[in-house]
Each structure stands twice: as C-alpha cells, then as structure tokens.
Nucleic acid binder design. Structure first.
Length: 864
RNA sequence: GGGCGCUUAGCUCAGGGGGAGAGCGCUUCCUUGACGCGGAAGAGGUCACAGGUUCAAAUCCUGUAGCGCCCACCA
C-alpha cells in the first residue's frame, strides 16, 4: 500500500471496474425490491457545474446505499436536448462562419446540431463518470432519441384528442432575439428604472384632451383606443367620445373597462391590443382592432408610418421627440417597474400576438395538487409544498410551441386544400378530404414538454416494458428548488395523467451552490468554480464529501474551496488508518460481512458499542434524506472516536499475544466505516477495501453493514476524563506530553478496571499506583472522574502557587454553575412541573458539581 | 403588491424548549514506528432586537430592523 493518499491515482481505475462488473445495473441485485431514481437530465450543451455536482452527489449517496442494502437499484442517466439553448450554441458557431441557420435550411441545420451533439454532447456524461456517479449507462436516454420522441408524440396526440391541447391566437411572451414564443416561467422579471410618459390625446370634438400615461411610448403607434374605469368620476363624460391619436391621426374611441386601475397614472390608459395582454383583453371586450406595430424582431412595421424600420428602443426616443414637437408630451416621470427578459439570452421579451399551441392546465393541475395534499407525495423540506400549491393554483395555460428548429416537431399537419388540421402519432399522408397536400406545422415543442415525461418515457412508456412495470413510479426525485415549476410540477401532472400514478413519493429539494461571496456562481461574474478543476486538484471524493457535508436541506450554500481541502484531509486520515491496520491483518481472515467478535475486550466493546449507535443514527438520518447531518456525525465518529481513541488504544494489544484478535476487531470497525462512507467517497473506500478485505469482491457491490449492539464497559468515560485530566495537567504547566509523573489512583469503590493500566501507559504516559486512601506527605493535585481520583505528585515539577491559582479558578467556575443549578432545584415550580427525568438529571449534576467543588477546595487546603 | 427564508464563535454554516456545536482560522506544546494533510491541550459566543407563552426560550408565538429569494397583466 502506497504511503501517501493520492486521489488522482486512486480515482483513475475503479469506474471501469464497477461498470464492467455491472454493479450499477439493477440486475446486480436481481431479487431485490426495485428502487429507481431518474437523473435530472442536464442540457447537452452544458458542462458540469457545482450545482450538478451537488445534485448528483446526493443522488449517488441515495442510490449506492440502496444498492448496498440489496435493492435492485437503478439510476437512469441521460440528457436533455435543451431546444433554445442548444440551437443558440450552434447558431453562434454558424455566426462565426458568417452564416445563419437560414443559409443552411432546416434539414441541414438540424443535421448540424446532431453533429454538434455527437462532437461535444458527450462531455457532460464523461464528467459524470469522472465524479464516480453510479448511473446505469446501459439505460442512458436522450430526450430526442427515438423512444422518447415517440412518447412525446403519444402524449401530444392524446392531450389534443382530449381537448387539453389547442391552438390559439393570443398575446404570448416573445423573445425578439431567439425569435420564439416563451412560456410564462421562461420569462425572468428584472427591476428596472424606466419612464412614465404622459401624452395628451385630443378629443376630435375639440373639447380638450385626455392624458394617458405609458412606460412604452412607442406602442402608441399601435393604439386603437383609450380606456378608463367605469366608476371614474373624472372621465364619466368622456366615455364614448373619440380622440385623435397623435402622430398618426387615427380616430380611436374612449371606452370604459373594469380592468383599468384608476389609481395608476392619470387613470386613463392607451390601448395597444397587439402588444399588451391587458390591452388585448380590453380590446376583445370592446371590439377594438389589434394593429401589430412591431414585428418579430421588435422593429416597427409599416403600421408605424414614418417610424417604420426603427427598433423598439430607437422608436421610443423618436416617438417621444415627435410628441414633444407636436406639443402633446405632457411630462415624463421616473418610474420603477419590472421588465421581463428571456431566460436564455436575457433580451427583453415582447408581448406579442401570434398563433401558438397551448396546454390547458386546469384539468391537470387539480389531481396534481390533490396528490400532494393527500400525502401521496411529499416535498422534503415540507415548506416547498406551499410554493408548489400557490404556483399550481394560479397557473395559466402553458404555451408549448416554439418557433425554433431544434426540438420535437409538433405532430400537426394542415391540409393545403381544405385547411383541416390533422394531429397524429404517425405522419399522415392524406387528409380526411382526400388531399395529399399536407404541410406539417413548422414549430417545435417546449423543451420542458419532453422533460415532463422523463420519469416514465425513459423506462419505455408508452410500451408496457418490464422496466416500466418495475421502476415506475420512481422512488425519489432529487432536484434544486429552481426547477420545481419548470420540471417537477409538470412531471407530477403528466405522471398522474398518463401512467396514472404519481411519479415518485418523495421530492428532495436542495439549494443552489453559490460562490464564496454569496452571489450566484456565473461565468460572467468570474466567480464560478469548475467542479472538474476542483476534482483535478483534490479528487472527486473530496468534492463529493464537501458538498454533502455542506448541503443543508433546501438552503443555498456559499461554497468554499477550503471545505474540499478539509474533506481531502479526511480522506488522507482514513487512508492512513487503513494503512496502519493492513500489516496487522496479515494472516487474519477479514470477512466482507459480519464477523463481529463474541467476547471483545473492554476497549473493543466500547468502540463496537459506539459503532452500533453511530450506525443506527447515521442510517436513520440517511433514510430521512439528512445527508449533511448523517455524514457530519459519521465523520466525527470516525475521526475523534475511532482514529483518535480506539486506534490508539488498539496499539497495545496489537503488539501483544492477542494481536490477531485485536487486529480482527480493528479490521471489522474500519471495514464498516468504509461501507458507511462508500456512498459519498466511493473511490477511496473502494481502494481501501481492496487492501483491507481484499479478494475480488467490490465494495460497490457489497452489503450495507448492520453492526450489532454491544454493552460499553462501565467507566469508560471516567477513564477518558482521567486521561484528559492528566494530559491537561502537563499542557497547562508547560510539561512535555511524556514528562514523567508520579500518579496514584485512589479508587475507594473499586471502579477502576484492569484494562485502565495498560491504557494509562499508552494514552497518558503514566503508570499509576493504586491505593485505597489518599496519599500524603507531599504536595499533589488531583483529577477526578466519578469516584476515582488520580493524584499527581507536584514534587519537583510545578510551582505550587501556579497550581493553586488554577485550582481556585476551576473551583470558582464549578461553584458558580452549582449555584445556578441549586437555585433551579430550589424553585418548587421547577421540581413540580418539569419532567421527573429532567429534575433527576439536574440533581445528578448538582451532586457531581458538589463533590467536584469540595474536592477542589480540599486540594487547595492540601496545598496550604 | 403577495409569499417564503435568513440573522448563532474572527469567517462559512449546522443545531432547534432543560449542560452553546462543526469546518477553517487563532494560542501553547509535541517529529510517540498510520497520518505534521498529524497529535494533545486551549482561547473565543448576553444564539439580530423588543415583547409574550412556559417551571424553563438560542429553540415556540407576535412584532421590529437588516439581508436574500420567489411570485404578480407595476399601462
């Protein structure tokens, strides 16, 4: 075994071994109960970021543990075609060649994207492997592969036939840069300081003007009305009149509509039906015409007269100038509001009137809400359920068509002869009218439409596959909170509607990884950490352990690289612990499971008892998805109990006659630690397992431990307190840790156990004499634990005055605490009302402190 | 405008009615045959503030302040 822990070397070879042994396949445990997680499919365009690293680490901890517990555990990997994002990437590549997608044409462009995917799309899966995540790659899926595309079509057609998908002409969110419609949640609102522009619209009868207020002066070119609230006294007489639209001269009516907020601006609003959702509604109620004055690039159309050809921002300035020149620009105020931006390219979105496909969500939402309310599904932490409910209850229809080329083509054909629309799973050749002149809808579906089907489409749906029967519903979903709406909510709706069951009972929500400065990690801010760089430096295990320990449920975490360093040092410690044990285990047959000693030595009983207790708590915490707590606990047990105490205590017997027995127990304890740590740090534990247990058996395929309970030896804590007391005595008097001391153990009740002797030598470098009564005749100090006291001779060692000062401080501190507890015990309310357990615990404490105080006082007296 | 979360040791954060915790940092000592990427012993906190409930509040409730996030047709 190499002297030093080198993560890069350790992590170089195990993944292939695991994969070729088939341990990541559920068939590894053919008789186990099914367990299934589907990966949140990363974008093919993407590379692994810290968020993925956390998300996947959590899933791997879950999956590897379940696998070790004997489940037929399946973790389905895959990636998402990421419509707009991927198309943008390839278009950018084309732009560098001086071309647009239109130069290539649709087919060639799509081919180009597939090329790009073949070339660069595999990067993220390579990174997933590098980090050791135990996915079943034989079941890898892609949202645009044949099977998933078929699932998409089946769902589309069925929803269409049920009337839950429809086509309509509506105001939608339009990205003028991506040239596509977006759903409501694909719009990110950003607070902006803009202007509120007041414009006079003169009445055609010459009786003055009505003043409207707008943040978007340029849209007045598309105005076809002015609206006021019906109860607004100020405008009562003006409803029904006609105004002349400035600059264009169009005559437009003043209408009364409930949708107008009389408090805002002047209480009169200009109505631009083609470019504002509220205005569009008002226009429909009053029969006002919709005039499109911006095109799909947000450039003013012919309808804008002399402003045609200007983009929206240039038009805004030009229109304001022209209005001012005409004397109808009343005033301009600063105005704070939020403006929607495209979540892909951050261009300000435009409300845009167009023909789109929609999913009618109401009928899908109701069962999705009820399922969670009934507790058939739960969010962890639970508080995310409220956000989910609130969002679902206020959901509007989902715009699913996108005017891009990369994605699932909408399976709808329009007959060129009769205009009839045919929606079908297989491409139709003839229309119901007999015509063969069918044109397929040019649009593709929202990327999130296919990801909504992921929990069952990846398992073979709509076919009745064995995997579908076995692994749907999935067991748990793990995701960050930022895609609950995009993804989780829609999976629940689709899962309930199609396979007819909730996709998984548990939804584990974790936070986002933030930069050390607390801000969002982003390439443009330059504060993003590349997980693969971190892995290159400290190893995948270290990063995984750091992420798992840092991630508290549902909260963001500002990530510090130092954590990874600390995690790597833990790896080094574990490495060295095993390296220490291995030579002792030569000739000892350490089983892969079981082998717990029947009649252990007291030191062993202590560690075995602690191993059992720790295992129980860690396992319970893992079952509750409290990974950070679980591994924090295990980490501390391993380091501060096993390594710092038990291995030190084991050294004495390992040199003695019973070396083989002692080594066996050391081996068992370390072996179970490797098992328990394996889900987080699989590489290191696998490597150490090969040295410790040996053989062909892989830890990744081994069984989860179940260490039995042991009764810890009495007085272990007392013993430990005495050792610390002696060490502390030396440290506080500036003596070296092995400075010889004369110690007498006074043990009136005979509580000291035989094994204390050997451990006093090993751990405290003293060989105490045992006595029934207190020694006398020289100056001494004492450290106490329970009834046993260790008297340390001060002869020739310590300035007695120093010791007196120290003792006095200790005595005063103890007396103070005692006084507080006694006061509490003197309160009859406390004694009556507090649980008996608490009261007796306080009494015990008081008794302990009482004897401590009198002991310390006695010592002071002894010193004179 | 509505909702949610956070405020605990120098830093980053756990915890969650009855003895204040971790990692990093800090102080002192120690090259003991697993490990100096280590060991031993320490220092350091009126748990944001104000009320309330309770025998008991860092923990539960109400309010205040600051910070952060999400949602909203804020013309």
């Amino acid at each position: 075994m190499e002297a030093a822990y080198d993560p890069q070397r350790v992590e170089a070879h195990w993944y292939d071994r695991w994969e070729s042994a088939g341990v990541f396949r559920p068939e590894h445990n053919p008789d186990g109960a099914p367990f299934c997680i589907v990966i949140p499919p990363p974008n093919v365009t993407g590379s692994l970021h810290m968020g993925h690293a956390l998300n996947l680490s959590v899933q791997d901890v879950i999956t590897r543990r379940k696998r070790m517990q004997g489940f037929a555990a399946l973790w389905v990997p895959g990636s998402d075609h990421a419509g707009i994002a991927t198309q943008n990437v390839v278009e950018r590549e084309l732009a560098a060649e001086g071309k647009t997608r239109h130069d290539l044409g649709r087919e060639a462009f799509i081919e180009r994207v597939w090329d790009w995917k073949a070339r660069s799309g595999g990067r993220i899966t390579e990174q997933i492997r590098r980090m050791g995540f135990s996915c079943d790659w034989t079941r890898e899926r892609f949202t645009m592969d044949e099977g998933l595309s078929r699932a998409v079509r089946t769902v589309f057609v069925r929803l269409y036939e049920e009337g839950l998908i429809y086509r309509g002409n509506r105001i939608i969110n339009w990205c003028p840069r991506c040239h596509t419609a977006l759903s409501d949640i694909e719009v990110e609102h950003e607070d902006t300081t803009g202007e509120l522009v007041y414009i006079d619209y003169p009445f055609t009868d010459g009786s003055g003007a009505v003043t409207v207020a707008t943040t978007r002066a340029e849209t007045m070119l598309g105005d076809t009305g002015v609206a006021v609230h019906p109860d607004d006294e100020r405008y009562r007489d003006q409803v029904g009149k006609t105004v002349r639209l400035p600059l264009l001269g169009r005559k437009i009516p003043v209408v009364a509509d409930e949708g107008v907020d009389p408090e805002f601006g002047t209480g009169a609003v200009k109505v631009t039906p083609a470019h504002d959702p509220l205005d569009h509604e008002i226009a429909e109620r009053h029969g006002l015409e919709a005039i499109a004055m911006l095109d799909e690039e947000a450039v003013v159309t012919e309808a804008g007269g002399r402003f045609a050809g200007l983009d929206r921002y240039a038009a805004r300035e030009a229109v304001k100038e022209a209005l001012a020149a005409d004397g109808v620009l009343r005033k301009i105020e600063e105005h704070h509001h939020s403006v929607g931006h495209c979540y892909r390219c951050h261009t300000a979105v435009e409300p845009y009137l167009s023909d789109q496909w929609f999913v009618k969500v109401r009928p899908l939402v109701i069962p999705a809400i009820e399922t969670v309310r009934r507790g058939e599904m739960r969010f962890i932490p639970e508080r995310w359920e409220n956000n989910y409910f609130h969002w679902m209850e206020n959901l509007r229809d989902w715009t699913i068509s996108r005017q891009i080329w990369w994605g699932h083509r909408i399976p709808a054909w329009t007959c060129a002869d009769c205009g009839e629309v045919t929606v079908a799973e297989t491409d139709p050749t003839t229309c119901a009218c007999g015509s063969t002149d069918l044109v397929q809808d040019p649009d593709v579906l929202d990327t999130w439409f296919s990801s909504a089907l992921w929990p069952f489409s990846t398992l073979g749906w709509p076919d009745d596959t064995g995997d579908l029967a076995k692994f749907y519903p999935n067991s748990v979903l793990v995701t960050a909170y930022d895609i609950i709406y995009f993804w989780v909510a829609r999976m629940i709706k689709m899962g309930l509607h199609f396979p007819g069951k909730p996709p998984y009972p548990d939804v584990v929500i974790h936070g986002l990884i933030r930069a050390a400065d607390g801000r969002k990690m982003s390439k443009s801010l330059g504060n993003a950490l590349d997980p693969l760089e971190v892995v290159g430096e400290h190893g995948a295990d270290a990063l995984r352990l750091a992420l798992i320990q840092a991630a508290s449920p549902g909260h963001d975490v500002p990530f510090q690289v130092e954590w990874v360093d600390a995690a790597r040092r833990f790896g080094n410690k574990l490495w060295n612990a095993v390296r220490f044990a291995v030579p002792h285990l030569e000739g000892v047959d350490l089983p892969a499971d079981g082998g717990y000693p029947d009649d252990p030595e007291p030191e062993e009983r202590w560690v075995l008892a602690r191993l059992h207790e720790t295992y129980r708590r860690v396992d319970d915490l893992l079952e509750e998805y409290r990974f950070s707590d679980a591994y924090g606990l295990l980490y501390n047990f391993a380091w501060s109990e096993v390594f710092d105490w038990y291995l030190e205590m084991a050294k004495t017997p390992l040199r003695g006659d019973e070396a083989a027995t002692a080594a066996h127990t050391v081996g068992i304890v370390l072996r179970d630690l490797l098992k328990l740590f394996h889900p987080v740090i699989p590489y290191l534990t696998e490597e150490l397992w090969s040295h410790l247990v040996g053989g062909d058996r892989l830890l990744a395929g081994a069984a989860w431990p179940d260490p039995p309970a042991y009764e810890a030896p009495l007085g272990f804590e007392d013993f430990r307190a005495l050792v610390v007391g002696i060490r502390r005595f030396r440290a506080e008097h500036g003596l070296s840790p092995r400075h010889p001391l004369t110690v007498t153990l006074v043990d009136p009740a005979g509580e000291a156990e035989d094994w204390w002797d050997r451990q006093f030598e090993a751990l405290a470098a003293v060989s105490p004499q045992t006595a029934k009564g207190e020694p006398s005749g020289e100056a001494f100090t004492r450290v106490a634990a329970g009834e046993v006291q260790a008297f340390i001779s001060l002869e020739g060692i310590v300035d007695v005055e120093d010791e007196r000062v120290r003792l006095r401080k200790d005595a005063d501190d103890a007396a103070e605490t005692l006084a507080r507890i006694e006061k509490k015990l003197a309160n009859p309310q406390f004694v009556e009302r507090a649980p008996a357990e608490v009261v007796s615990k306080e009494r015990e404490k008081a008794a302990e402190l009482g004897s401590k105080v009198s002991r310390l006082r006695a010592q002071l007296d002894d010193l004179g």
